[in-house]
């Protein structure tokens, strides 16, 4: 299982693109926003937490279809499915490596981009905390979506359509934490709810992912 995780990380680093692509996309989205809404600092500061969350979410979405599609193409997915690894564990590992290569860089880059968006100084801590708590859920949910669409050629668009509604609770609670944090309000309730959503998805969705993966391999 750890071997699979290490292999996926190694592949993401070596294959180029995969690793930095989400990050670059995040940067571009954030850079584009002031062009669209105007350079007014007060406005940018107000919308910063939400925009940063939406940007991170879209950047996560970008690399989802790579989770299983590459392994499917070269036949490794069949071989992994016939190996002694439990498929549930495979799905959890896939989500983990997706998070490490996509979610974690986003969490680390978010404060820098917050600077570009003139995020108020109280907001940085809670932005990072909310992203650190929320992005694992995005990866796990995304893995489920990727497992659903693995058998479909050019399933990228469908994947987005399926996954985005599932992202709603995470986005709401995550952005709520970041927003309340930036305006200096209490964040405990939102934080607990965000953590709850993440825990539930992490606990349950790998089983659903494994189930649909099995159906797709038949």
């Amino acid at each position: 299982m750890i071997a699979l995780f290490l292999r996926d990380i190694r592949l993401a680093v070596r294959a180029g693109g995969g690793f930095g692509l989400g990050l670059a996309f995040f940067l571009i989205v954030i850079v584009l926003v002031p062009f669209a809404v105007g350079p007014e600092t007060a406005l940018l500061a107000r919308i910063a937490p939400g925009i940063l969350w939406v940007g991170a979410l879209l950047a996560c979405l970008l690399s989802l279809d790579r989770i299983f599609a590459l392994d499917r193409e070269d036949g490794s997915l069949d071989l992994i499915a016939t190996s002694p690894l439990p498929l549930e564990g495979v799905c959890a590992m896939k989500a983990l490596s997706h998070w490490v290569t996509t979610g974690l860089p986003l969490v680390i880059a978010a404060p820098v981009l917050g600077l570009l968006m003139s995020l108020p100084s109280e907001g940085y801590l809670w932005l990072v905390v909310s992203l650190a708590l929320g992005t694992p859920a995005l990866s796990v949910i995304g893995t489920f979506g990727a497992a659903l669409t693995v058998g479909i050629k050019r399933g990228g668009l469908l994947l987005s359509l399926l996954v985005l509604p599932l992202y709603v609770p995470t986005l709401i609670f995550g952005a709520e934490v970041a927003r309340a944090g930036a305006t200096g309000l209490a964040v405990e309730t939102q934080l607990v709810l965000l953590a709850a959503v993440t825990c539930v998805t992490m606990a349950l969705l790998p089983f659903a992912s494994a189930a649909v993966l099995r159906m797709n391999l038949r």
Binding site: P165, V168, I172, V197, A208
Partner: peptide, 21 residues
């Protein structure tokens, strides 16, 4: 079918999230 089941759970979650929001 699996999507419907998972979707139902998330639809309920979204309902409460939206209420909170």
């Amino acid at each position: 079918s699996v999507l419907c089941i998972v979707g139902s759970v998330f639809a309920v979650l979204s309902r409460y999230a939206v209420n909170f929001w």
